[in-house]
Design a protein around this nucleic acid. Structure first.
Length: 363
DNA sequence: TGTTCAAGGCTGGACCGTAG
DNA sequence: CTACGGTCCAGCCTTGAACA
């Protein structure tokens, strides 16, 4: 029984899921502040704050930040100068790529890009895939994988020669380095996170422990590849920093082993509502701890915010939302969903989750 | 409220060139 | 030869605005 179960599902850390939608909140989210440069006794940081929304316990405060410890004084001055010349307001309105195109220095451009698009659905897909591998490899939080296998699982196609395109390879290295380099600052006990003076923890999603280059003639530097070039190592060994797995504390959510992390051709990861909804539902399973483990009632306002459905046309937002629910229903994660008549004009949605595809650990 | 239209952002794959 | 680097652009999808 237990082994069958393990074949069909894999555990993803509960604390990570609780914080994931917040940690990856986009620039359009009203709780998100624009990036700032900050220095304190410990060093320099480029950081983005996500403020808590006190009307809902799950909308906790999180800071995501890139430590800039290896910057020279000149680089720090240049970074400050580039930062001052940025029009951060139009960056949100006109798109991130557009907003950053004036920055000449590629490293600075990529730094902002990494922070602004942190934990987008493509990166979340990578994280899910790594938790699945951790379960298969049974080596605790340590996972070893071949880059090409990961690209394959993300649904990318190969060139005529059989390799992957330089741009996708490069994006993968940048994603991995972002998951390694960006630190999350959050309350140690998320459920009490809004209290003043709460103890904080600082963690990355993963740490890259080592990597391999099979063609020895290539000389590869992880940071340089992420900051300046289009390179990718052939394999990586990483350690998942949020990891309870199936250990005795048992704080996790089981995901279906056939979870789809492929990137759809022609589509755009920031519009991957299906992955956002899946993760948000998993997150709410941890926050709400429903007695039956199946029924979740979530206000539409918070659903829309966490799906980044923040456009001005509410009927269109509704269309996209229900289309997304339909997708997860087709995949079997959701057994049913219905809109509950709203108290004071705040309608909510009741979901019935399929415990065979998504199930929290017993509380 | 929902539809239609035009404009434009983001992604990845085609193509081609280059370095080692 | 393979992997990297750059340019171009089609396809998907969203957005704001106008309108029924």
């Amino acid at each position: 029984m237990a082994s069958i179960e393990r074949d069909l599902t894999f555990p993803v850390d509960g604390q990570l899921l609780m914080v994931l939608p917040r940690a990856g909140a986009s620039i359009n989210n009203p709780d998100v502040h624009l990036p700032i440069l900050r220095s304190d006794g410990d060093g320099y940081y480029l950081e983005m704050r996500v403020e808590a929304d006190t009307n809902d316990a799950g909308e906790v405060a999180v800071i995501r930040r890139v430590p800039l410890e290896d910057l020279t004084t000149d680089e720090w001055e240049e970074l400050k100068q580039q930062y001052d010349s940025l029009d951060l307001e139009t960056l949100a309105a006109q798109g991130i790529a557009k907003g950053l195109e004036k920055i000449q220095d590629r490293k600075i451009q990529r730094l902002f890009m990494a922070l602004l698009t942190f934990l987008n659905p493509r990166q979340v897909g990578i994280v899910l895939y790594l938790y699945k591998l951790a379960d298969e490899q049974n080596n605790g939080p340590v996972v070893t994988f071949r880059s090409n296998n990961l690209l394959e699982n993300l649904g990318y196609s190969r060139t005529k020669g059989g390799s992957f395109h330089a741009k996708v390879r490069s994006q993968l290295n940048r994603d991995l380095v972002a998951l390694h380099r960006v630190e999350l600052v959050l309350a140690k006990s998320l459920r009490e996170g809004n209290k003043i003076g709460a103890e904080v923890i600082i963690k990355s999603i993963l740490r890259i422990k080592s990597y391999k280059i099979e063609n020895l003639s290539r000389d590869f530097d992880l940071a340089k590849a992420a900051d300046y070039t289009y390179e990718l190592a052939d394999s990586y060994t990483v350690s998942l920093e949020f990891f309870e797995g199936s250990s005795r504390t048992g704080d996790y959510v089981l995901f279906a082993g056939d979870v789809d992390v492929t990137q759809k051709l022609g589509s755009n990861t920031k519009n991957d509502y299906r992955t956002k909804l899946l993760i948000y539902l998993a997150s709410r399973l941890k926050w709400d701890s429903p007695q039956d483990g199946q029924y979740l009632t979530i206000s539409k306002q918070y659903l829309f915010k966490n799906l980044d459905l923040l456009g001005s046309n509410s009927s269109r937002n509704n269309q996209i939302f229900w289309r997304t629910v339909e997708e997860l229903q087709q995949e079997g994660y959701i057994l049913g969903a219905q809109e509950l008549p709203g108290k004071r004009k705040t309608p909510s949605i009741q979901f019935q989750i399929n415990p065979q595809k998504l199930r929290p650990s017993a509380v």
